[in-house]
């Protein structure tokens, strides 16, 4: 079994504990904001406008067989104005994607 992952977890927790204990010793620091001095309910907005300017969907093939890693096939579906699509491999709960070489037929945008 891999020992690296537990060690990384251990180091991270060790550092968090170390820094939180060290931060107890430091109480002098600059104030960067003035939030204590905002007059209550003094924030007034005369413009409040939220416009949808782009919506795009991308999809990644979900694994069917055994994992054995490999780069994920992430293909943006049709994109209106934003050609870049954010890749976030491995974030999905269904786990690993199958290795490359996938071609995915584009679906029309704004579906789902």
């Amino acid at each position: 079994m891999d020992f690296l992952m537990p060690l990384i977890i251990g180091l991270v927790v060790g550092l968090i504990v170390l820094f939180s204990l060290l931060s107890q010793l430091k109480s002098v620091s600059q104030k960067h904001e003035a939030s204590d001095y905002v007059v209550q309910n003094s924030l007034h907005l005369n413009v409040r406008n939220d416009r949808l300017i782009d919506k795009h969907t991308e999809r990644q093939m979900v694994r069917q067989a055994m994992p054995q890693g490999g780069s994920a096939g992430s293909v943006p579906m049709q994109n209106a104005s934003h050609p870049q699509s954010s890749h976030s491999p491995g974030m999905h709960s269904q786990g690993h994607q199958q290795g490359g070489g996938l071609t995915i037929v584009d679906a029309p945008k704004n579906k789902h």
């Binding site: 949808l52 300017i53 795009h56 969907t57 999809r59 990644q60 979900v62 934003h82 699509s85």
Partner: peptide, 11 residues
């Protein structure tokens, strides 16, 4: 598939 839909707003 796993889908990610991103909606971009100008606020």
């Amino acid at each position: 598939y796993a889908y990610t839909e991103t909606s971009v707003f100008s606020v």
